[in-house]
Amino acid sequence: MKPAPFVLHRPRTLADALELLDSRENARVLAGGQSLMPMLNMRLASPDHLIDLNRIDELGFIREEGDEVVVGAMTRQRDVEYSDVVASRLPLMREAILQVGHRQTRNRGTIGGSLCHLDPSAEMPTVMMAFDAVLLLQSRRGARTVEMGSFAEGMMTTALQPDEMLTQIRMRPWDPAHGASFVEFARRHGDFAVASAAAMIELDPSLRVSRASLTLGGVAATPLRLRDAERALIGRRGDEGFTKVAQYADECDALDDPAFPSWYRRRLAVTLLARAIDRAYRRAAARAVKA
C-alpha cells in the first residue's frame, strides 16, 4: 500500500498552483489528504503530478463579508469546529463538522477537499447543499462561480474542469433565530454515514414554519435538496404533520448496495429527516419563546 511515483510540486501561491494545474498533464491537487492520500496509497488514484496546496496560506480563512460567510477551500475542518463565526452564524455547519471523521482527521482535513472529493455520505457537501452555497472555481483562464446544486454532478463527480481549482465557498447565514439540526446514522461514530439529514427552519411570530431547508446526505449519489418537502413544511407548527413531511424522503432515488439496499436507505432517510425537522423546529421555537 504505497503510492505510485509522481512528481511533487509545492507552490506557495495560488497563481503558481493554477499555472501548474494548467500546464501539467494528469495532475491532481492535494488538500488535507484525508481522502486523496488513502486513494494514492491504494493506487485508486495515480496522478503523474501532485500539487500540494498546504503551503498556500491565502486559501485558509473564515471571514464575514457583508451578509455572507466566506470559507477558504484549504480551511481545516478543525478550524471550522473551533470558529466563533461558524458557531454563531452557521450552526448547521457547526453541528455537522463534529460528525466529520475523528479529531485526528479533522486536524488536517479541509472543507474544499471534502467538497471536491464529493463522497455521497460526506457531511460538508450536504451542508453546502442546505445553504445553496456558491463555490468559486479558479483556473488560469479566469474564475467562475457555481451553485452547490450544479457543482455536485454525480457520484464523486463535480463540475470542476481539469485545470480548475475550488478556492472559496460562500454561504448566506439564516436569521439568527432559526433552528438547525444535522443528524446522521453511522455504524460507528466517525465512520462514513449510511445516511444523514440536515434541516434549517425559520418561524413566524405564531411559531409556524416560514422558511425551511431540508437536505439528505448519503441517500442518493449527491446530496439531495427536498424542495417539495420544504414547501410542505411551510405554515406548520408544533409537530403537526412533521412525520408526513418526512415521508417525502421515501420518494427519492436511493443508492443500492448489498450492505444497505435502497429500501433500507429510504427508511433511514425518513427517520433521520423526521428527527432533523423536529430538532430544528424545537431549537427555533426555544429561541422564539426566549425572545
Partner: peptide
C-alpha cells in the same frame, strides 16, 4: 494529531 500514513514526508 495527524495520521502519518496520510501525510507525505515532504
Amino acid at each position: 494529531t495527524a495520521r502519518s500514513c496520510l501525510m507525505l514526508a515532504a
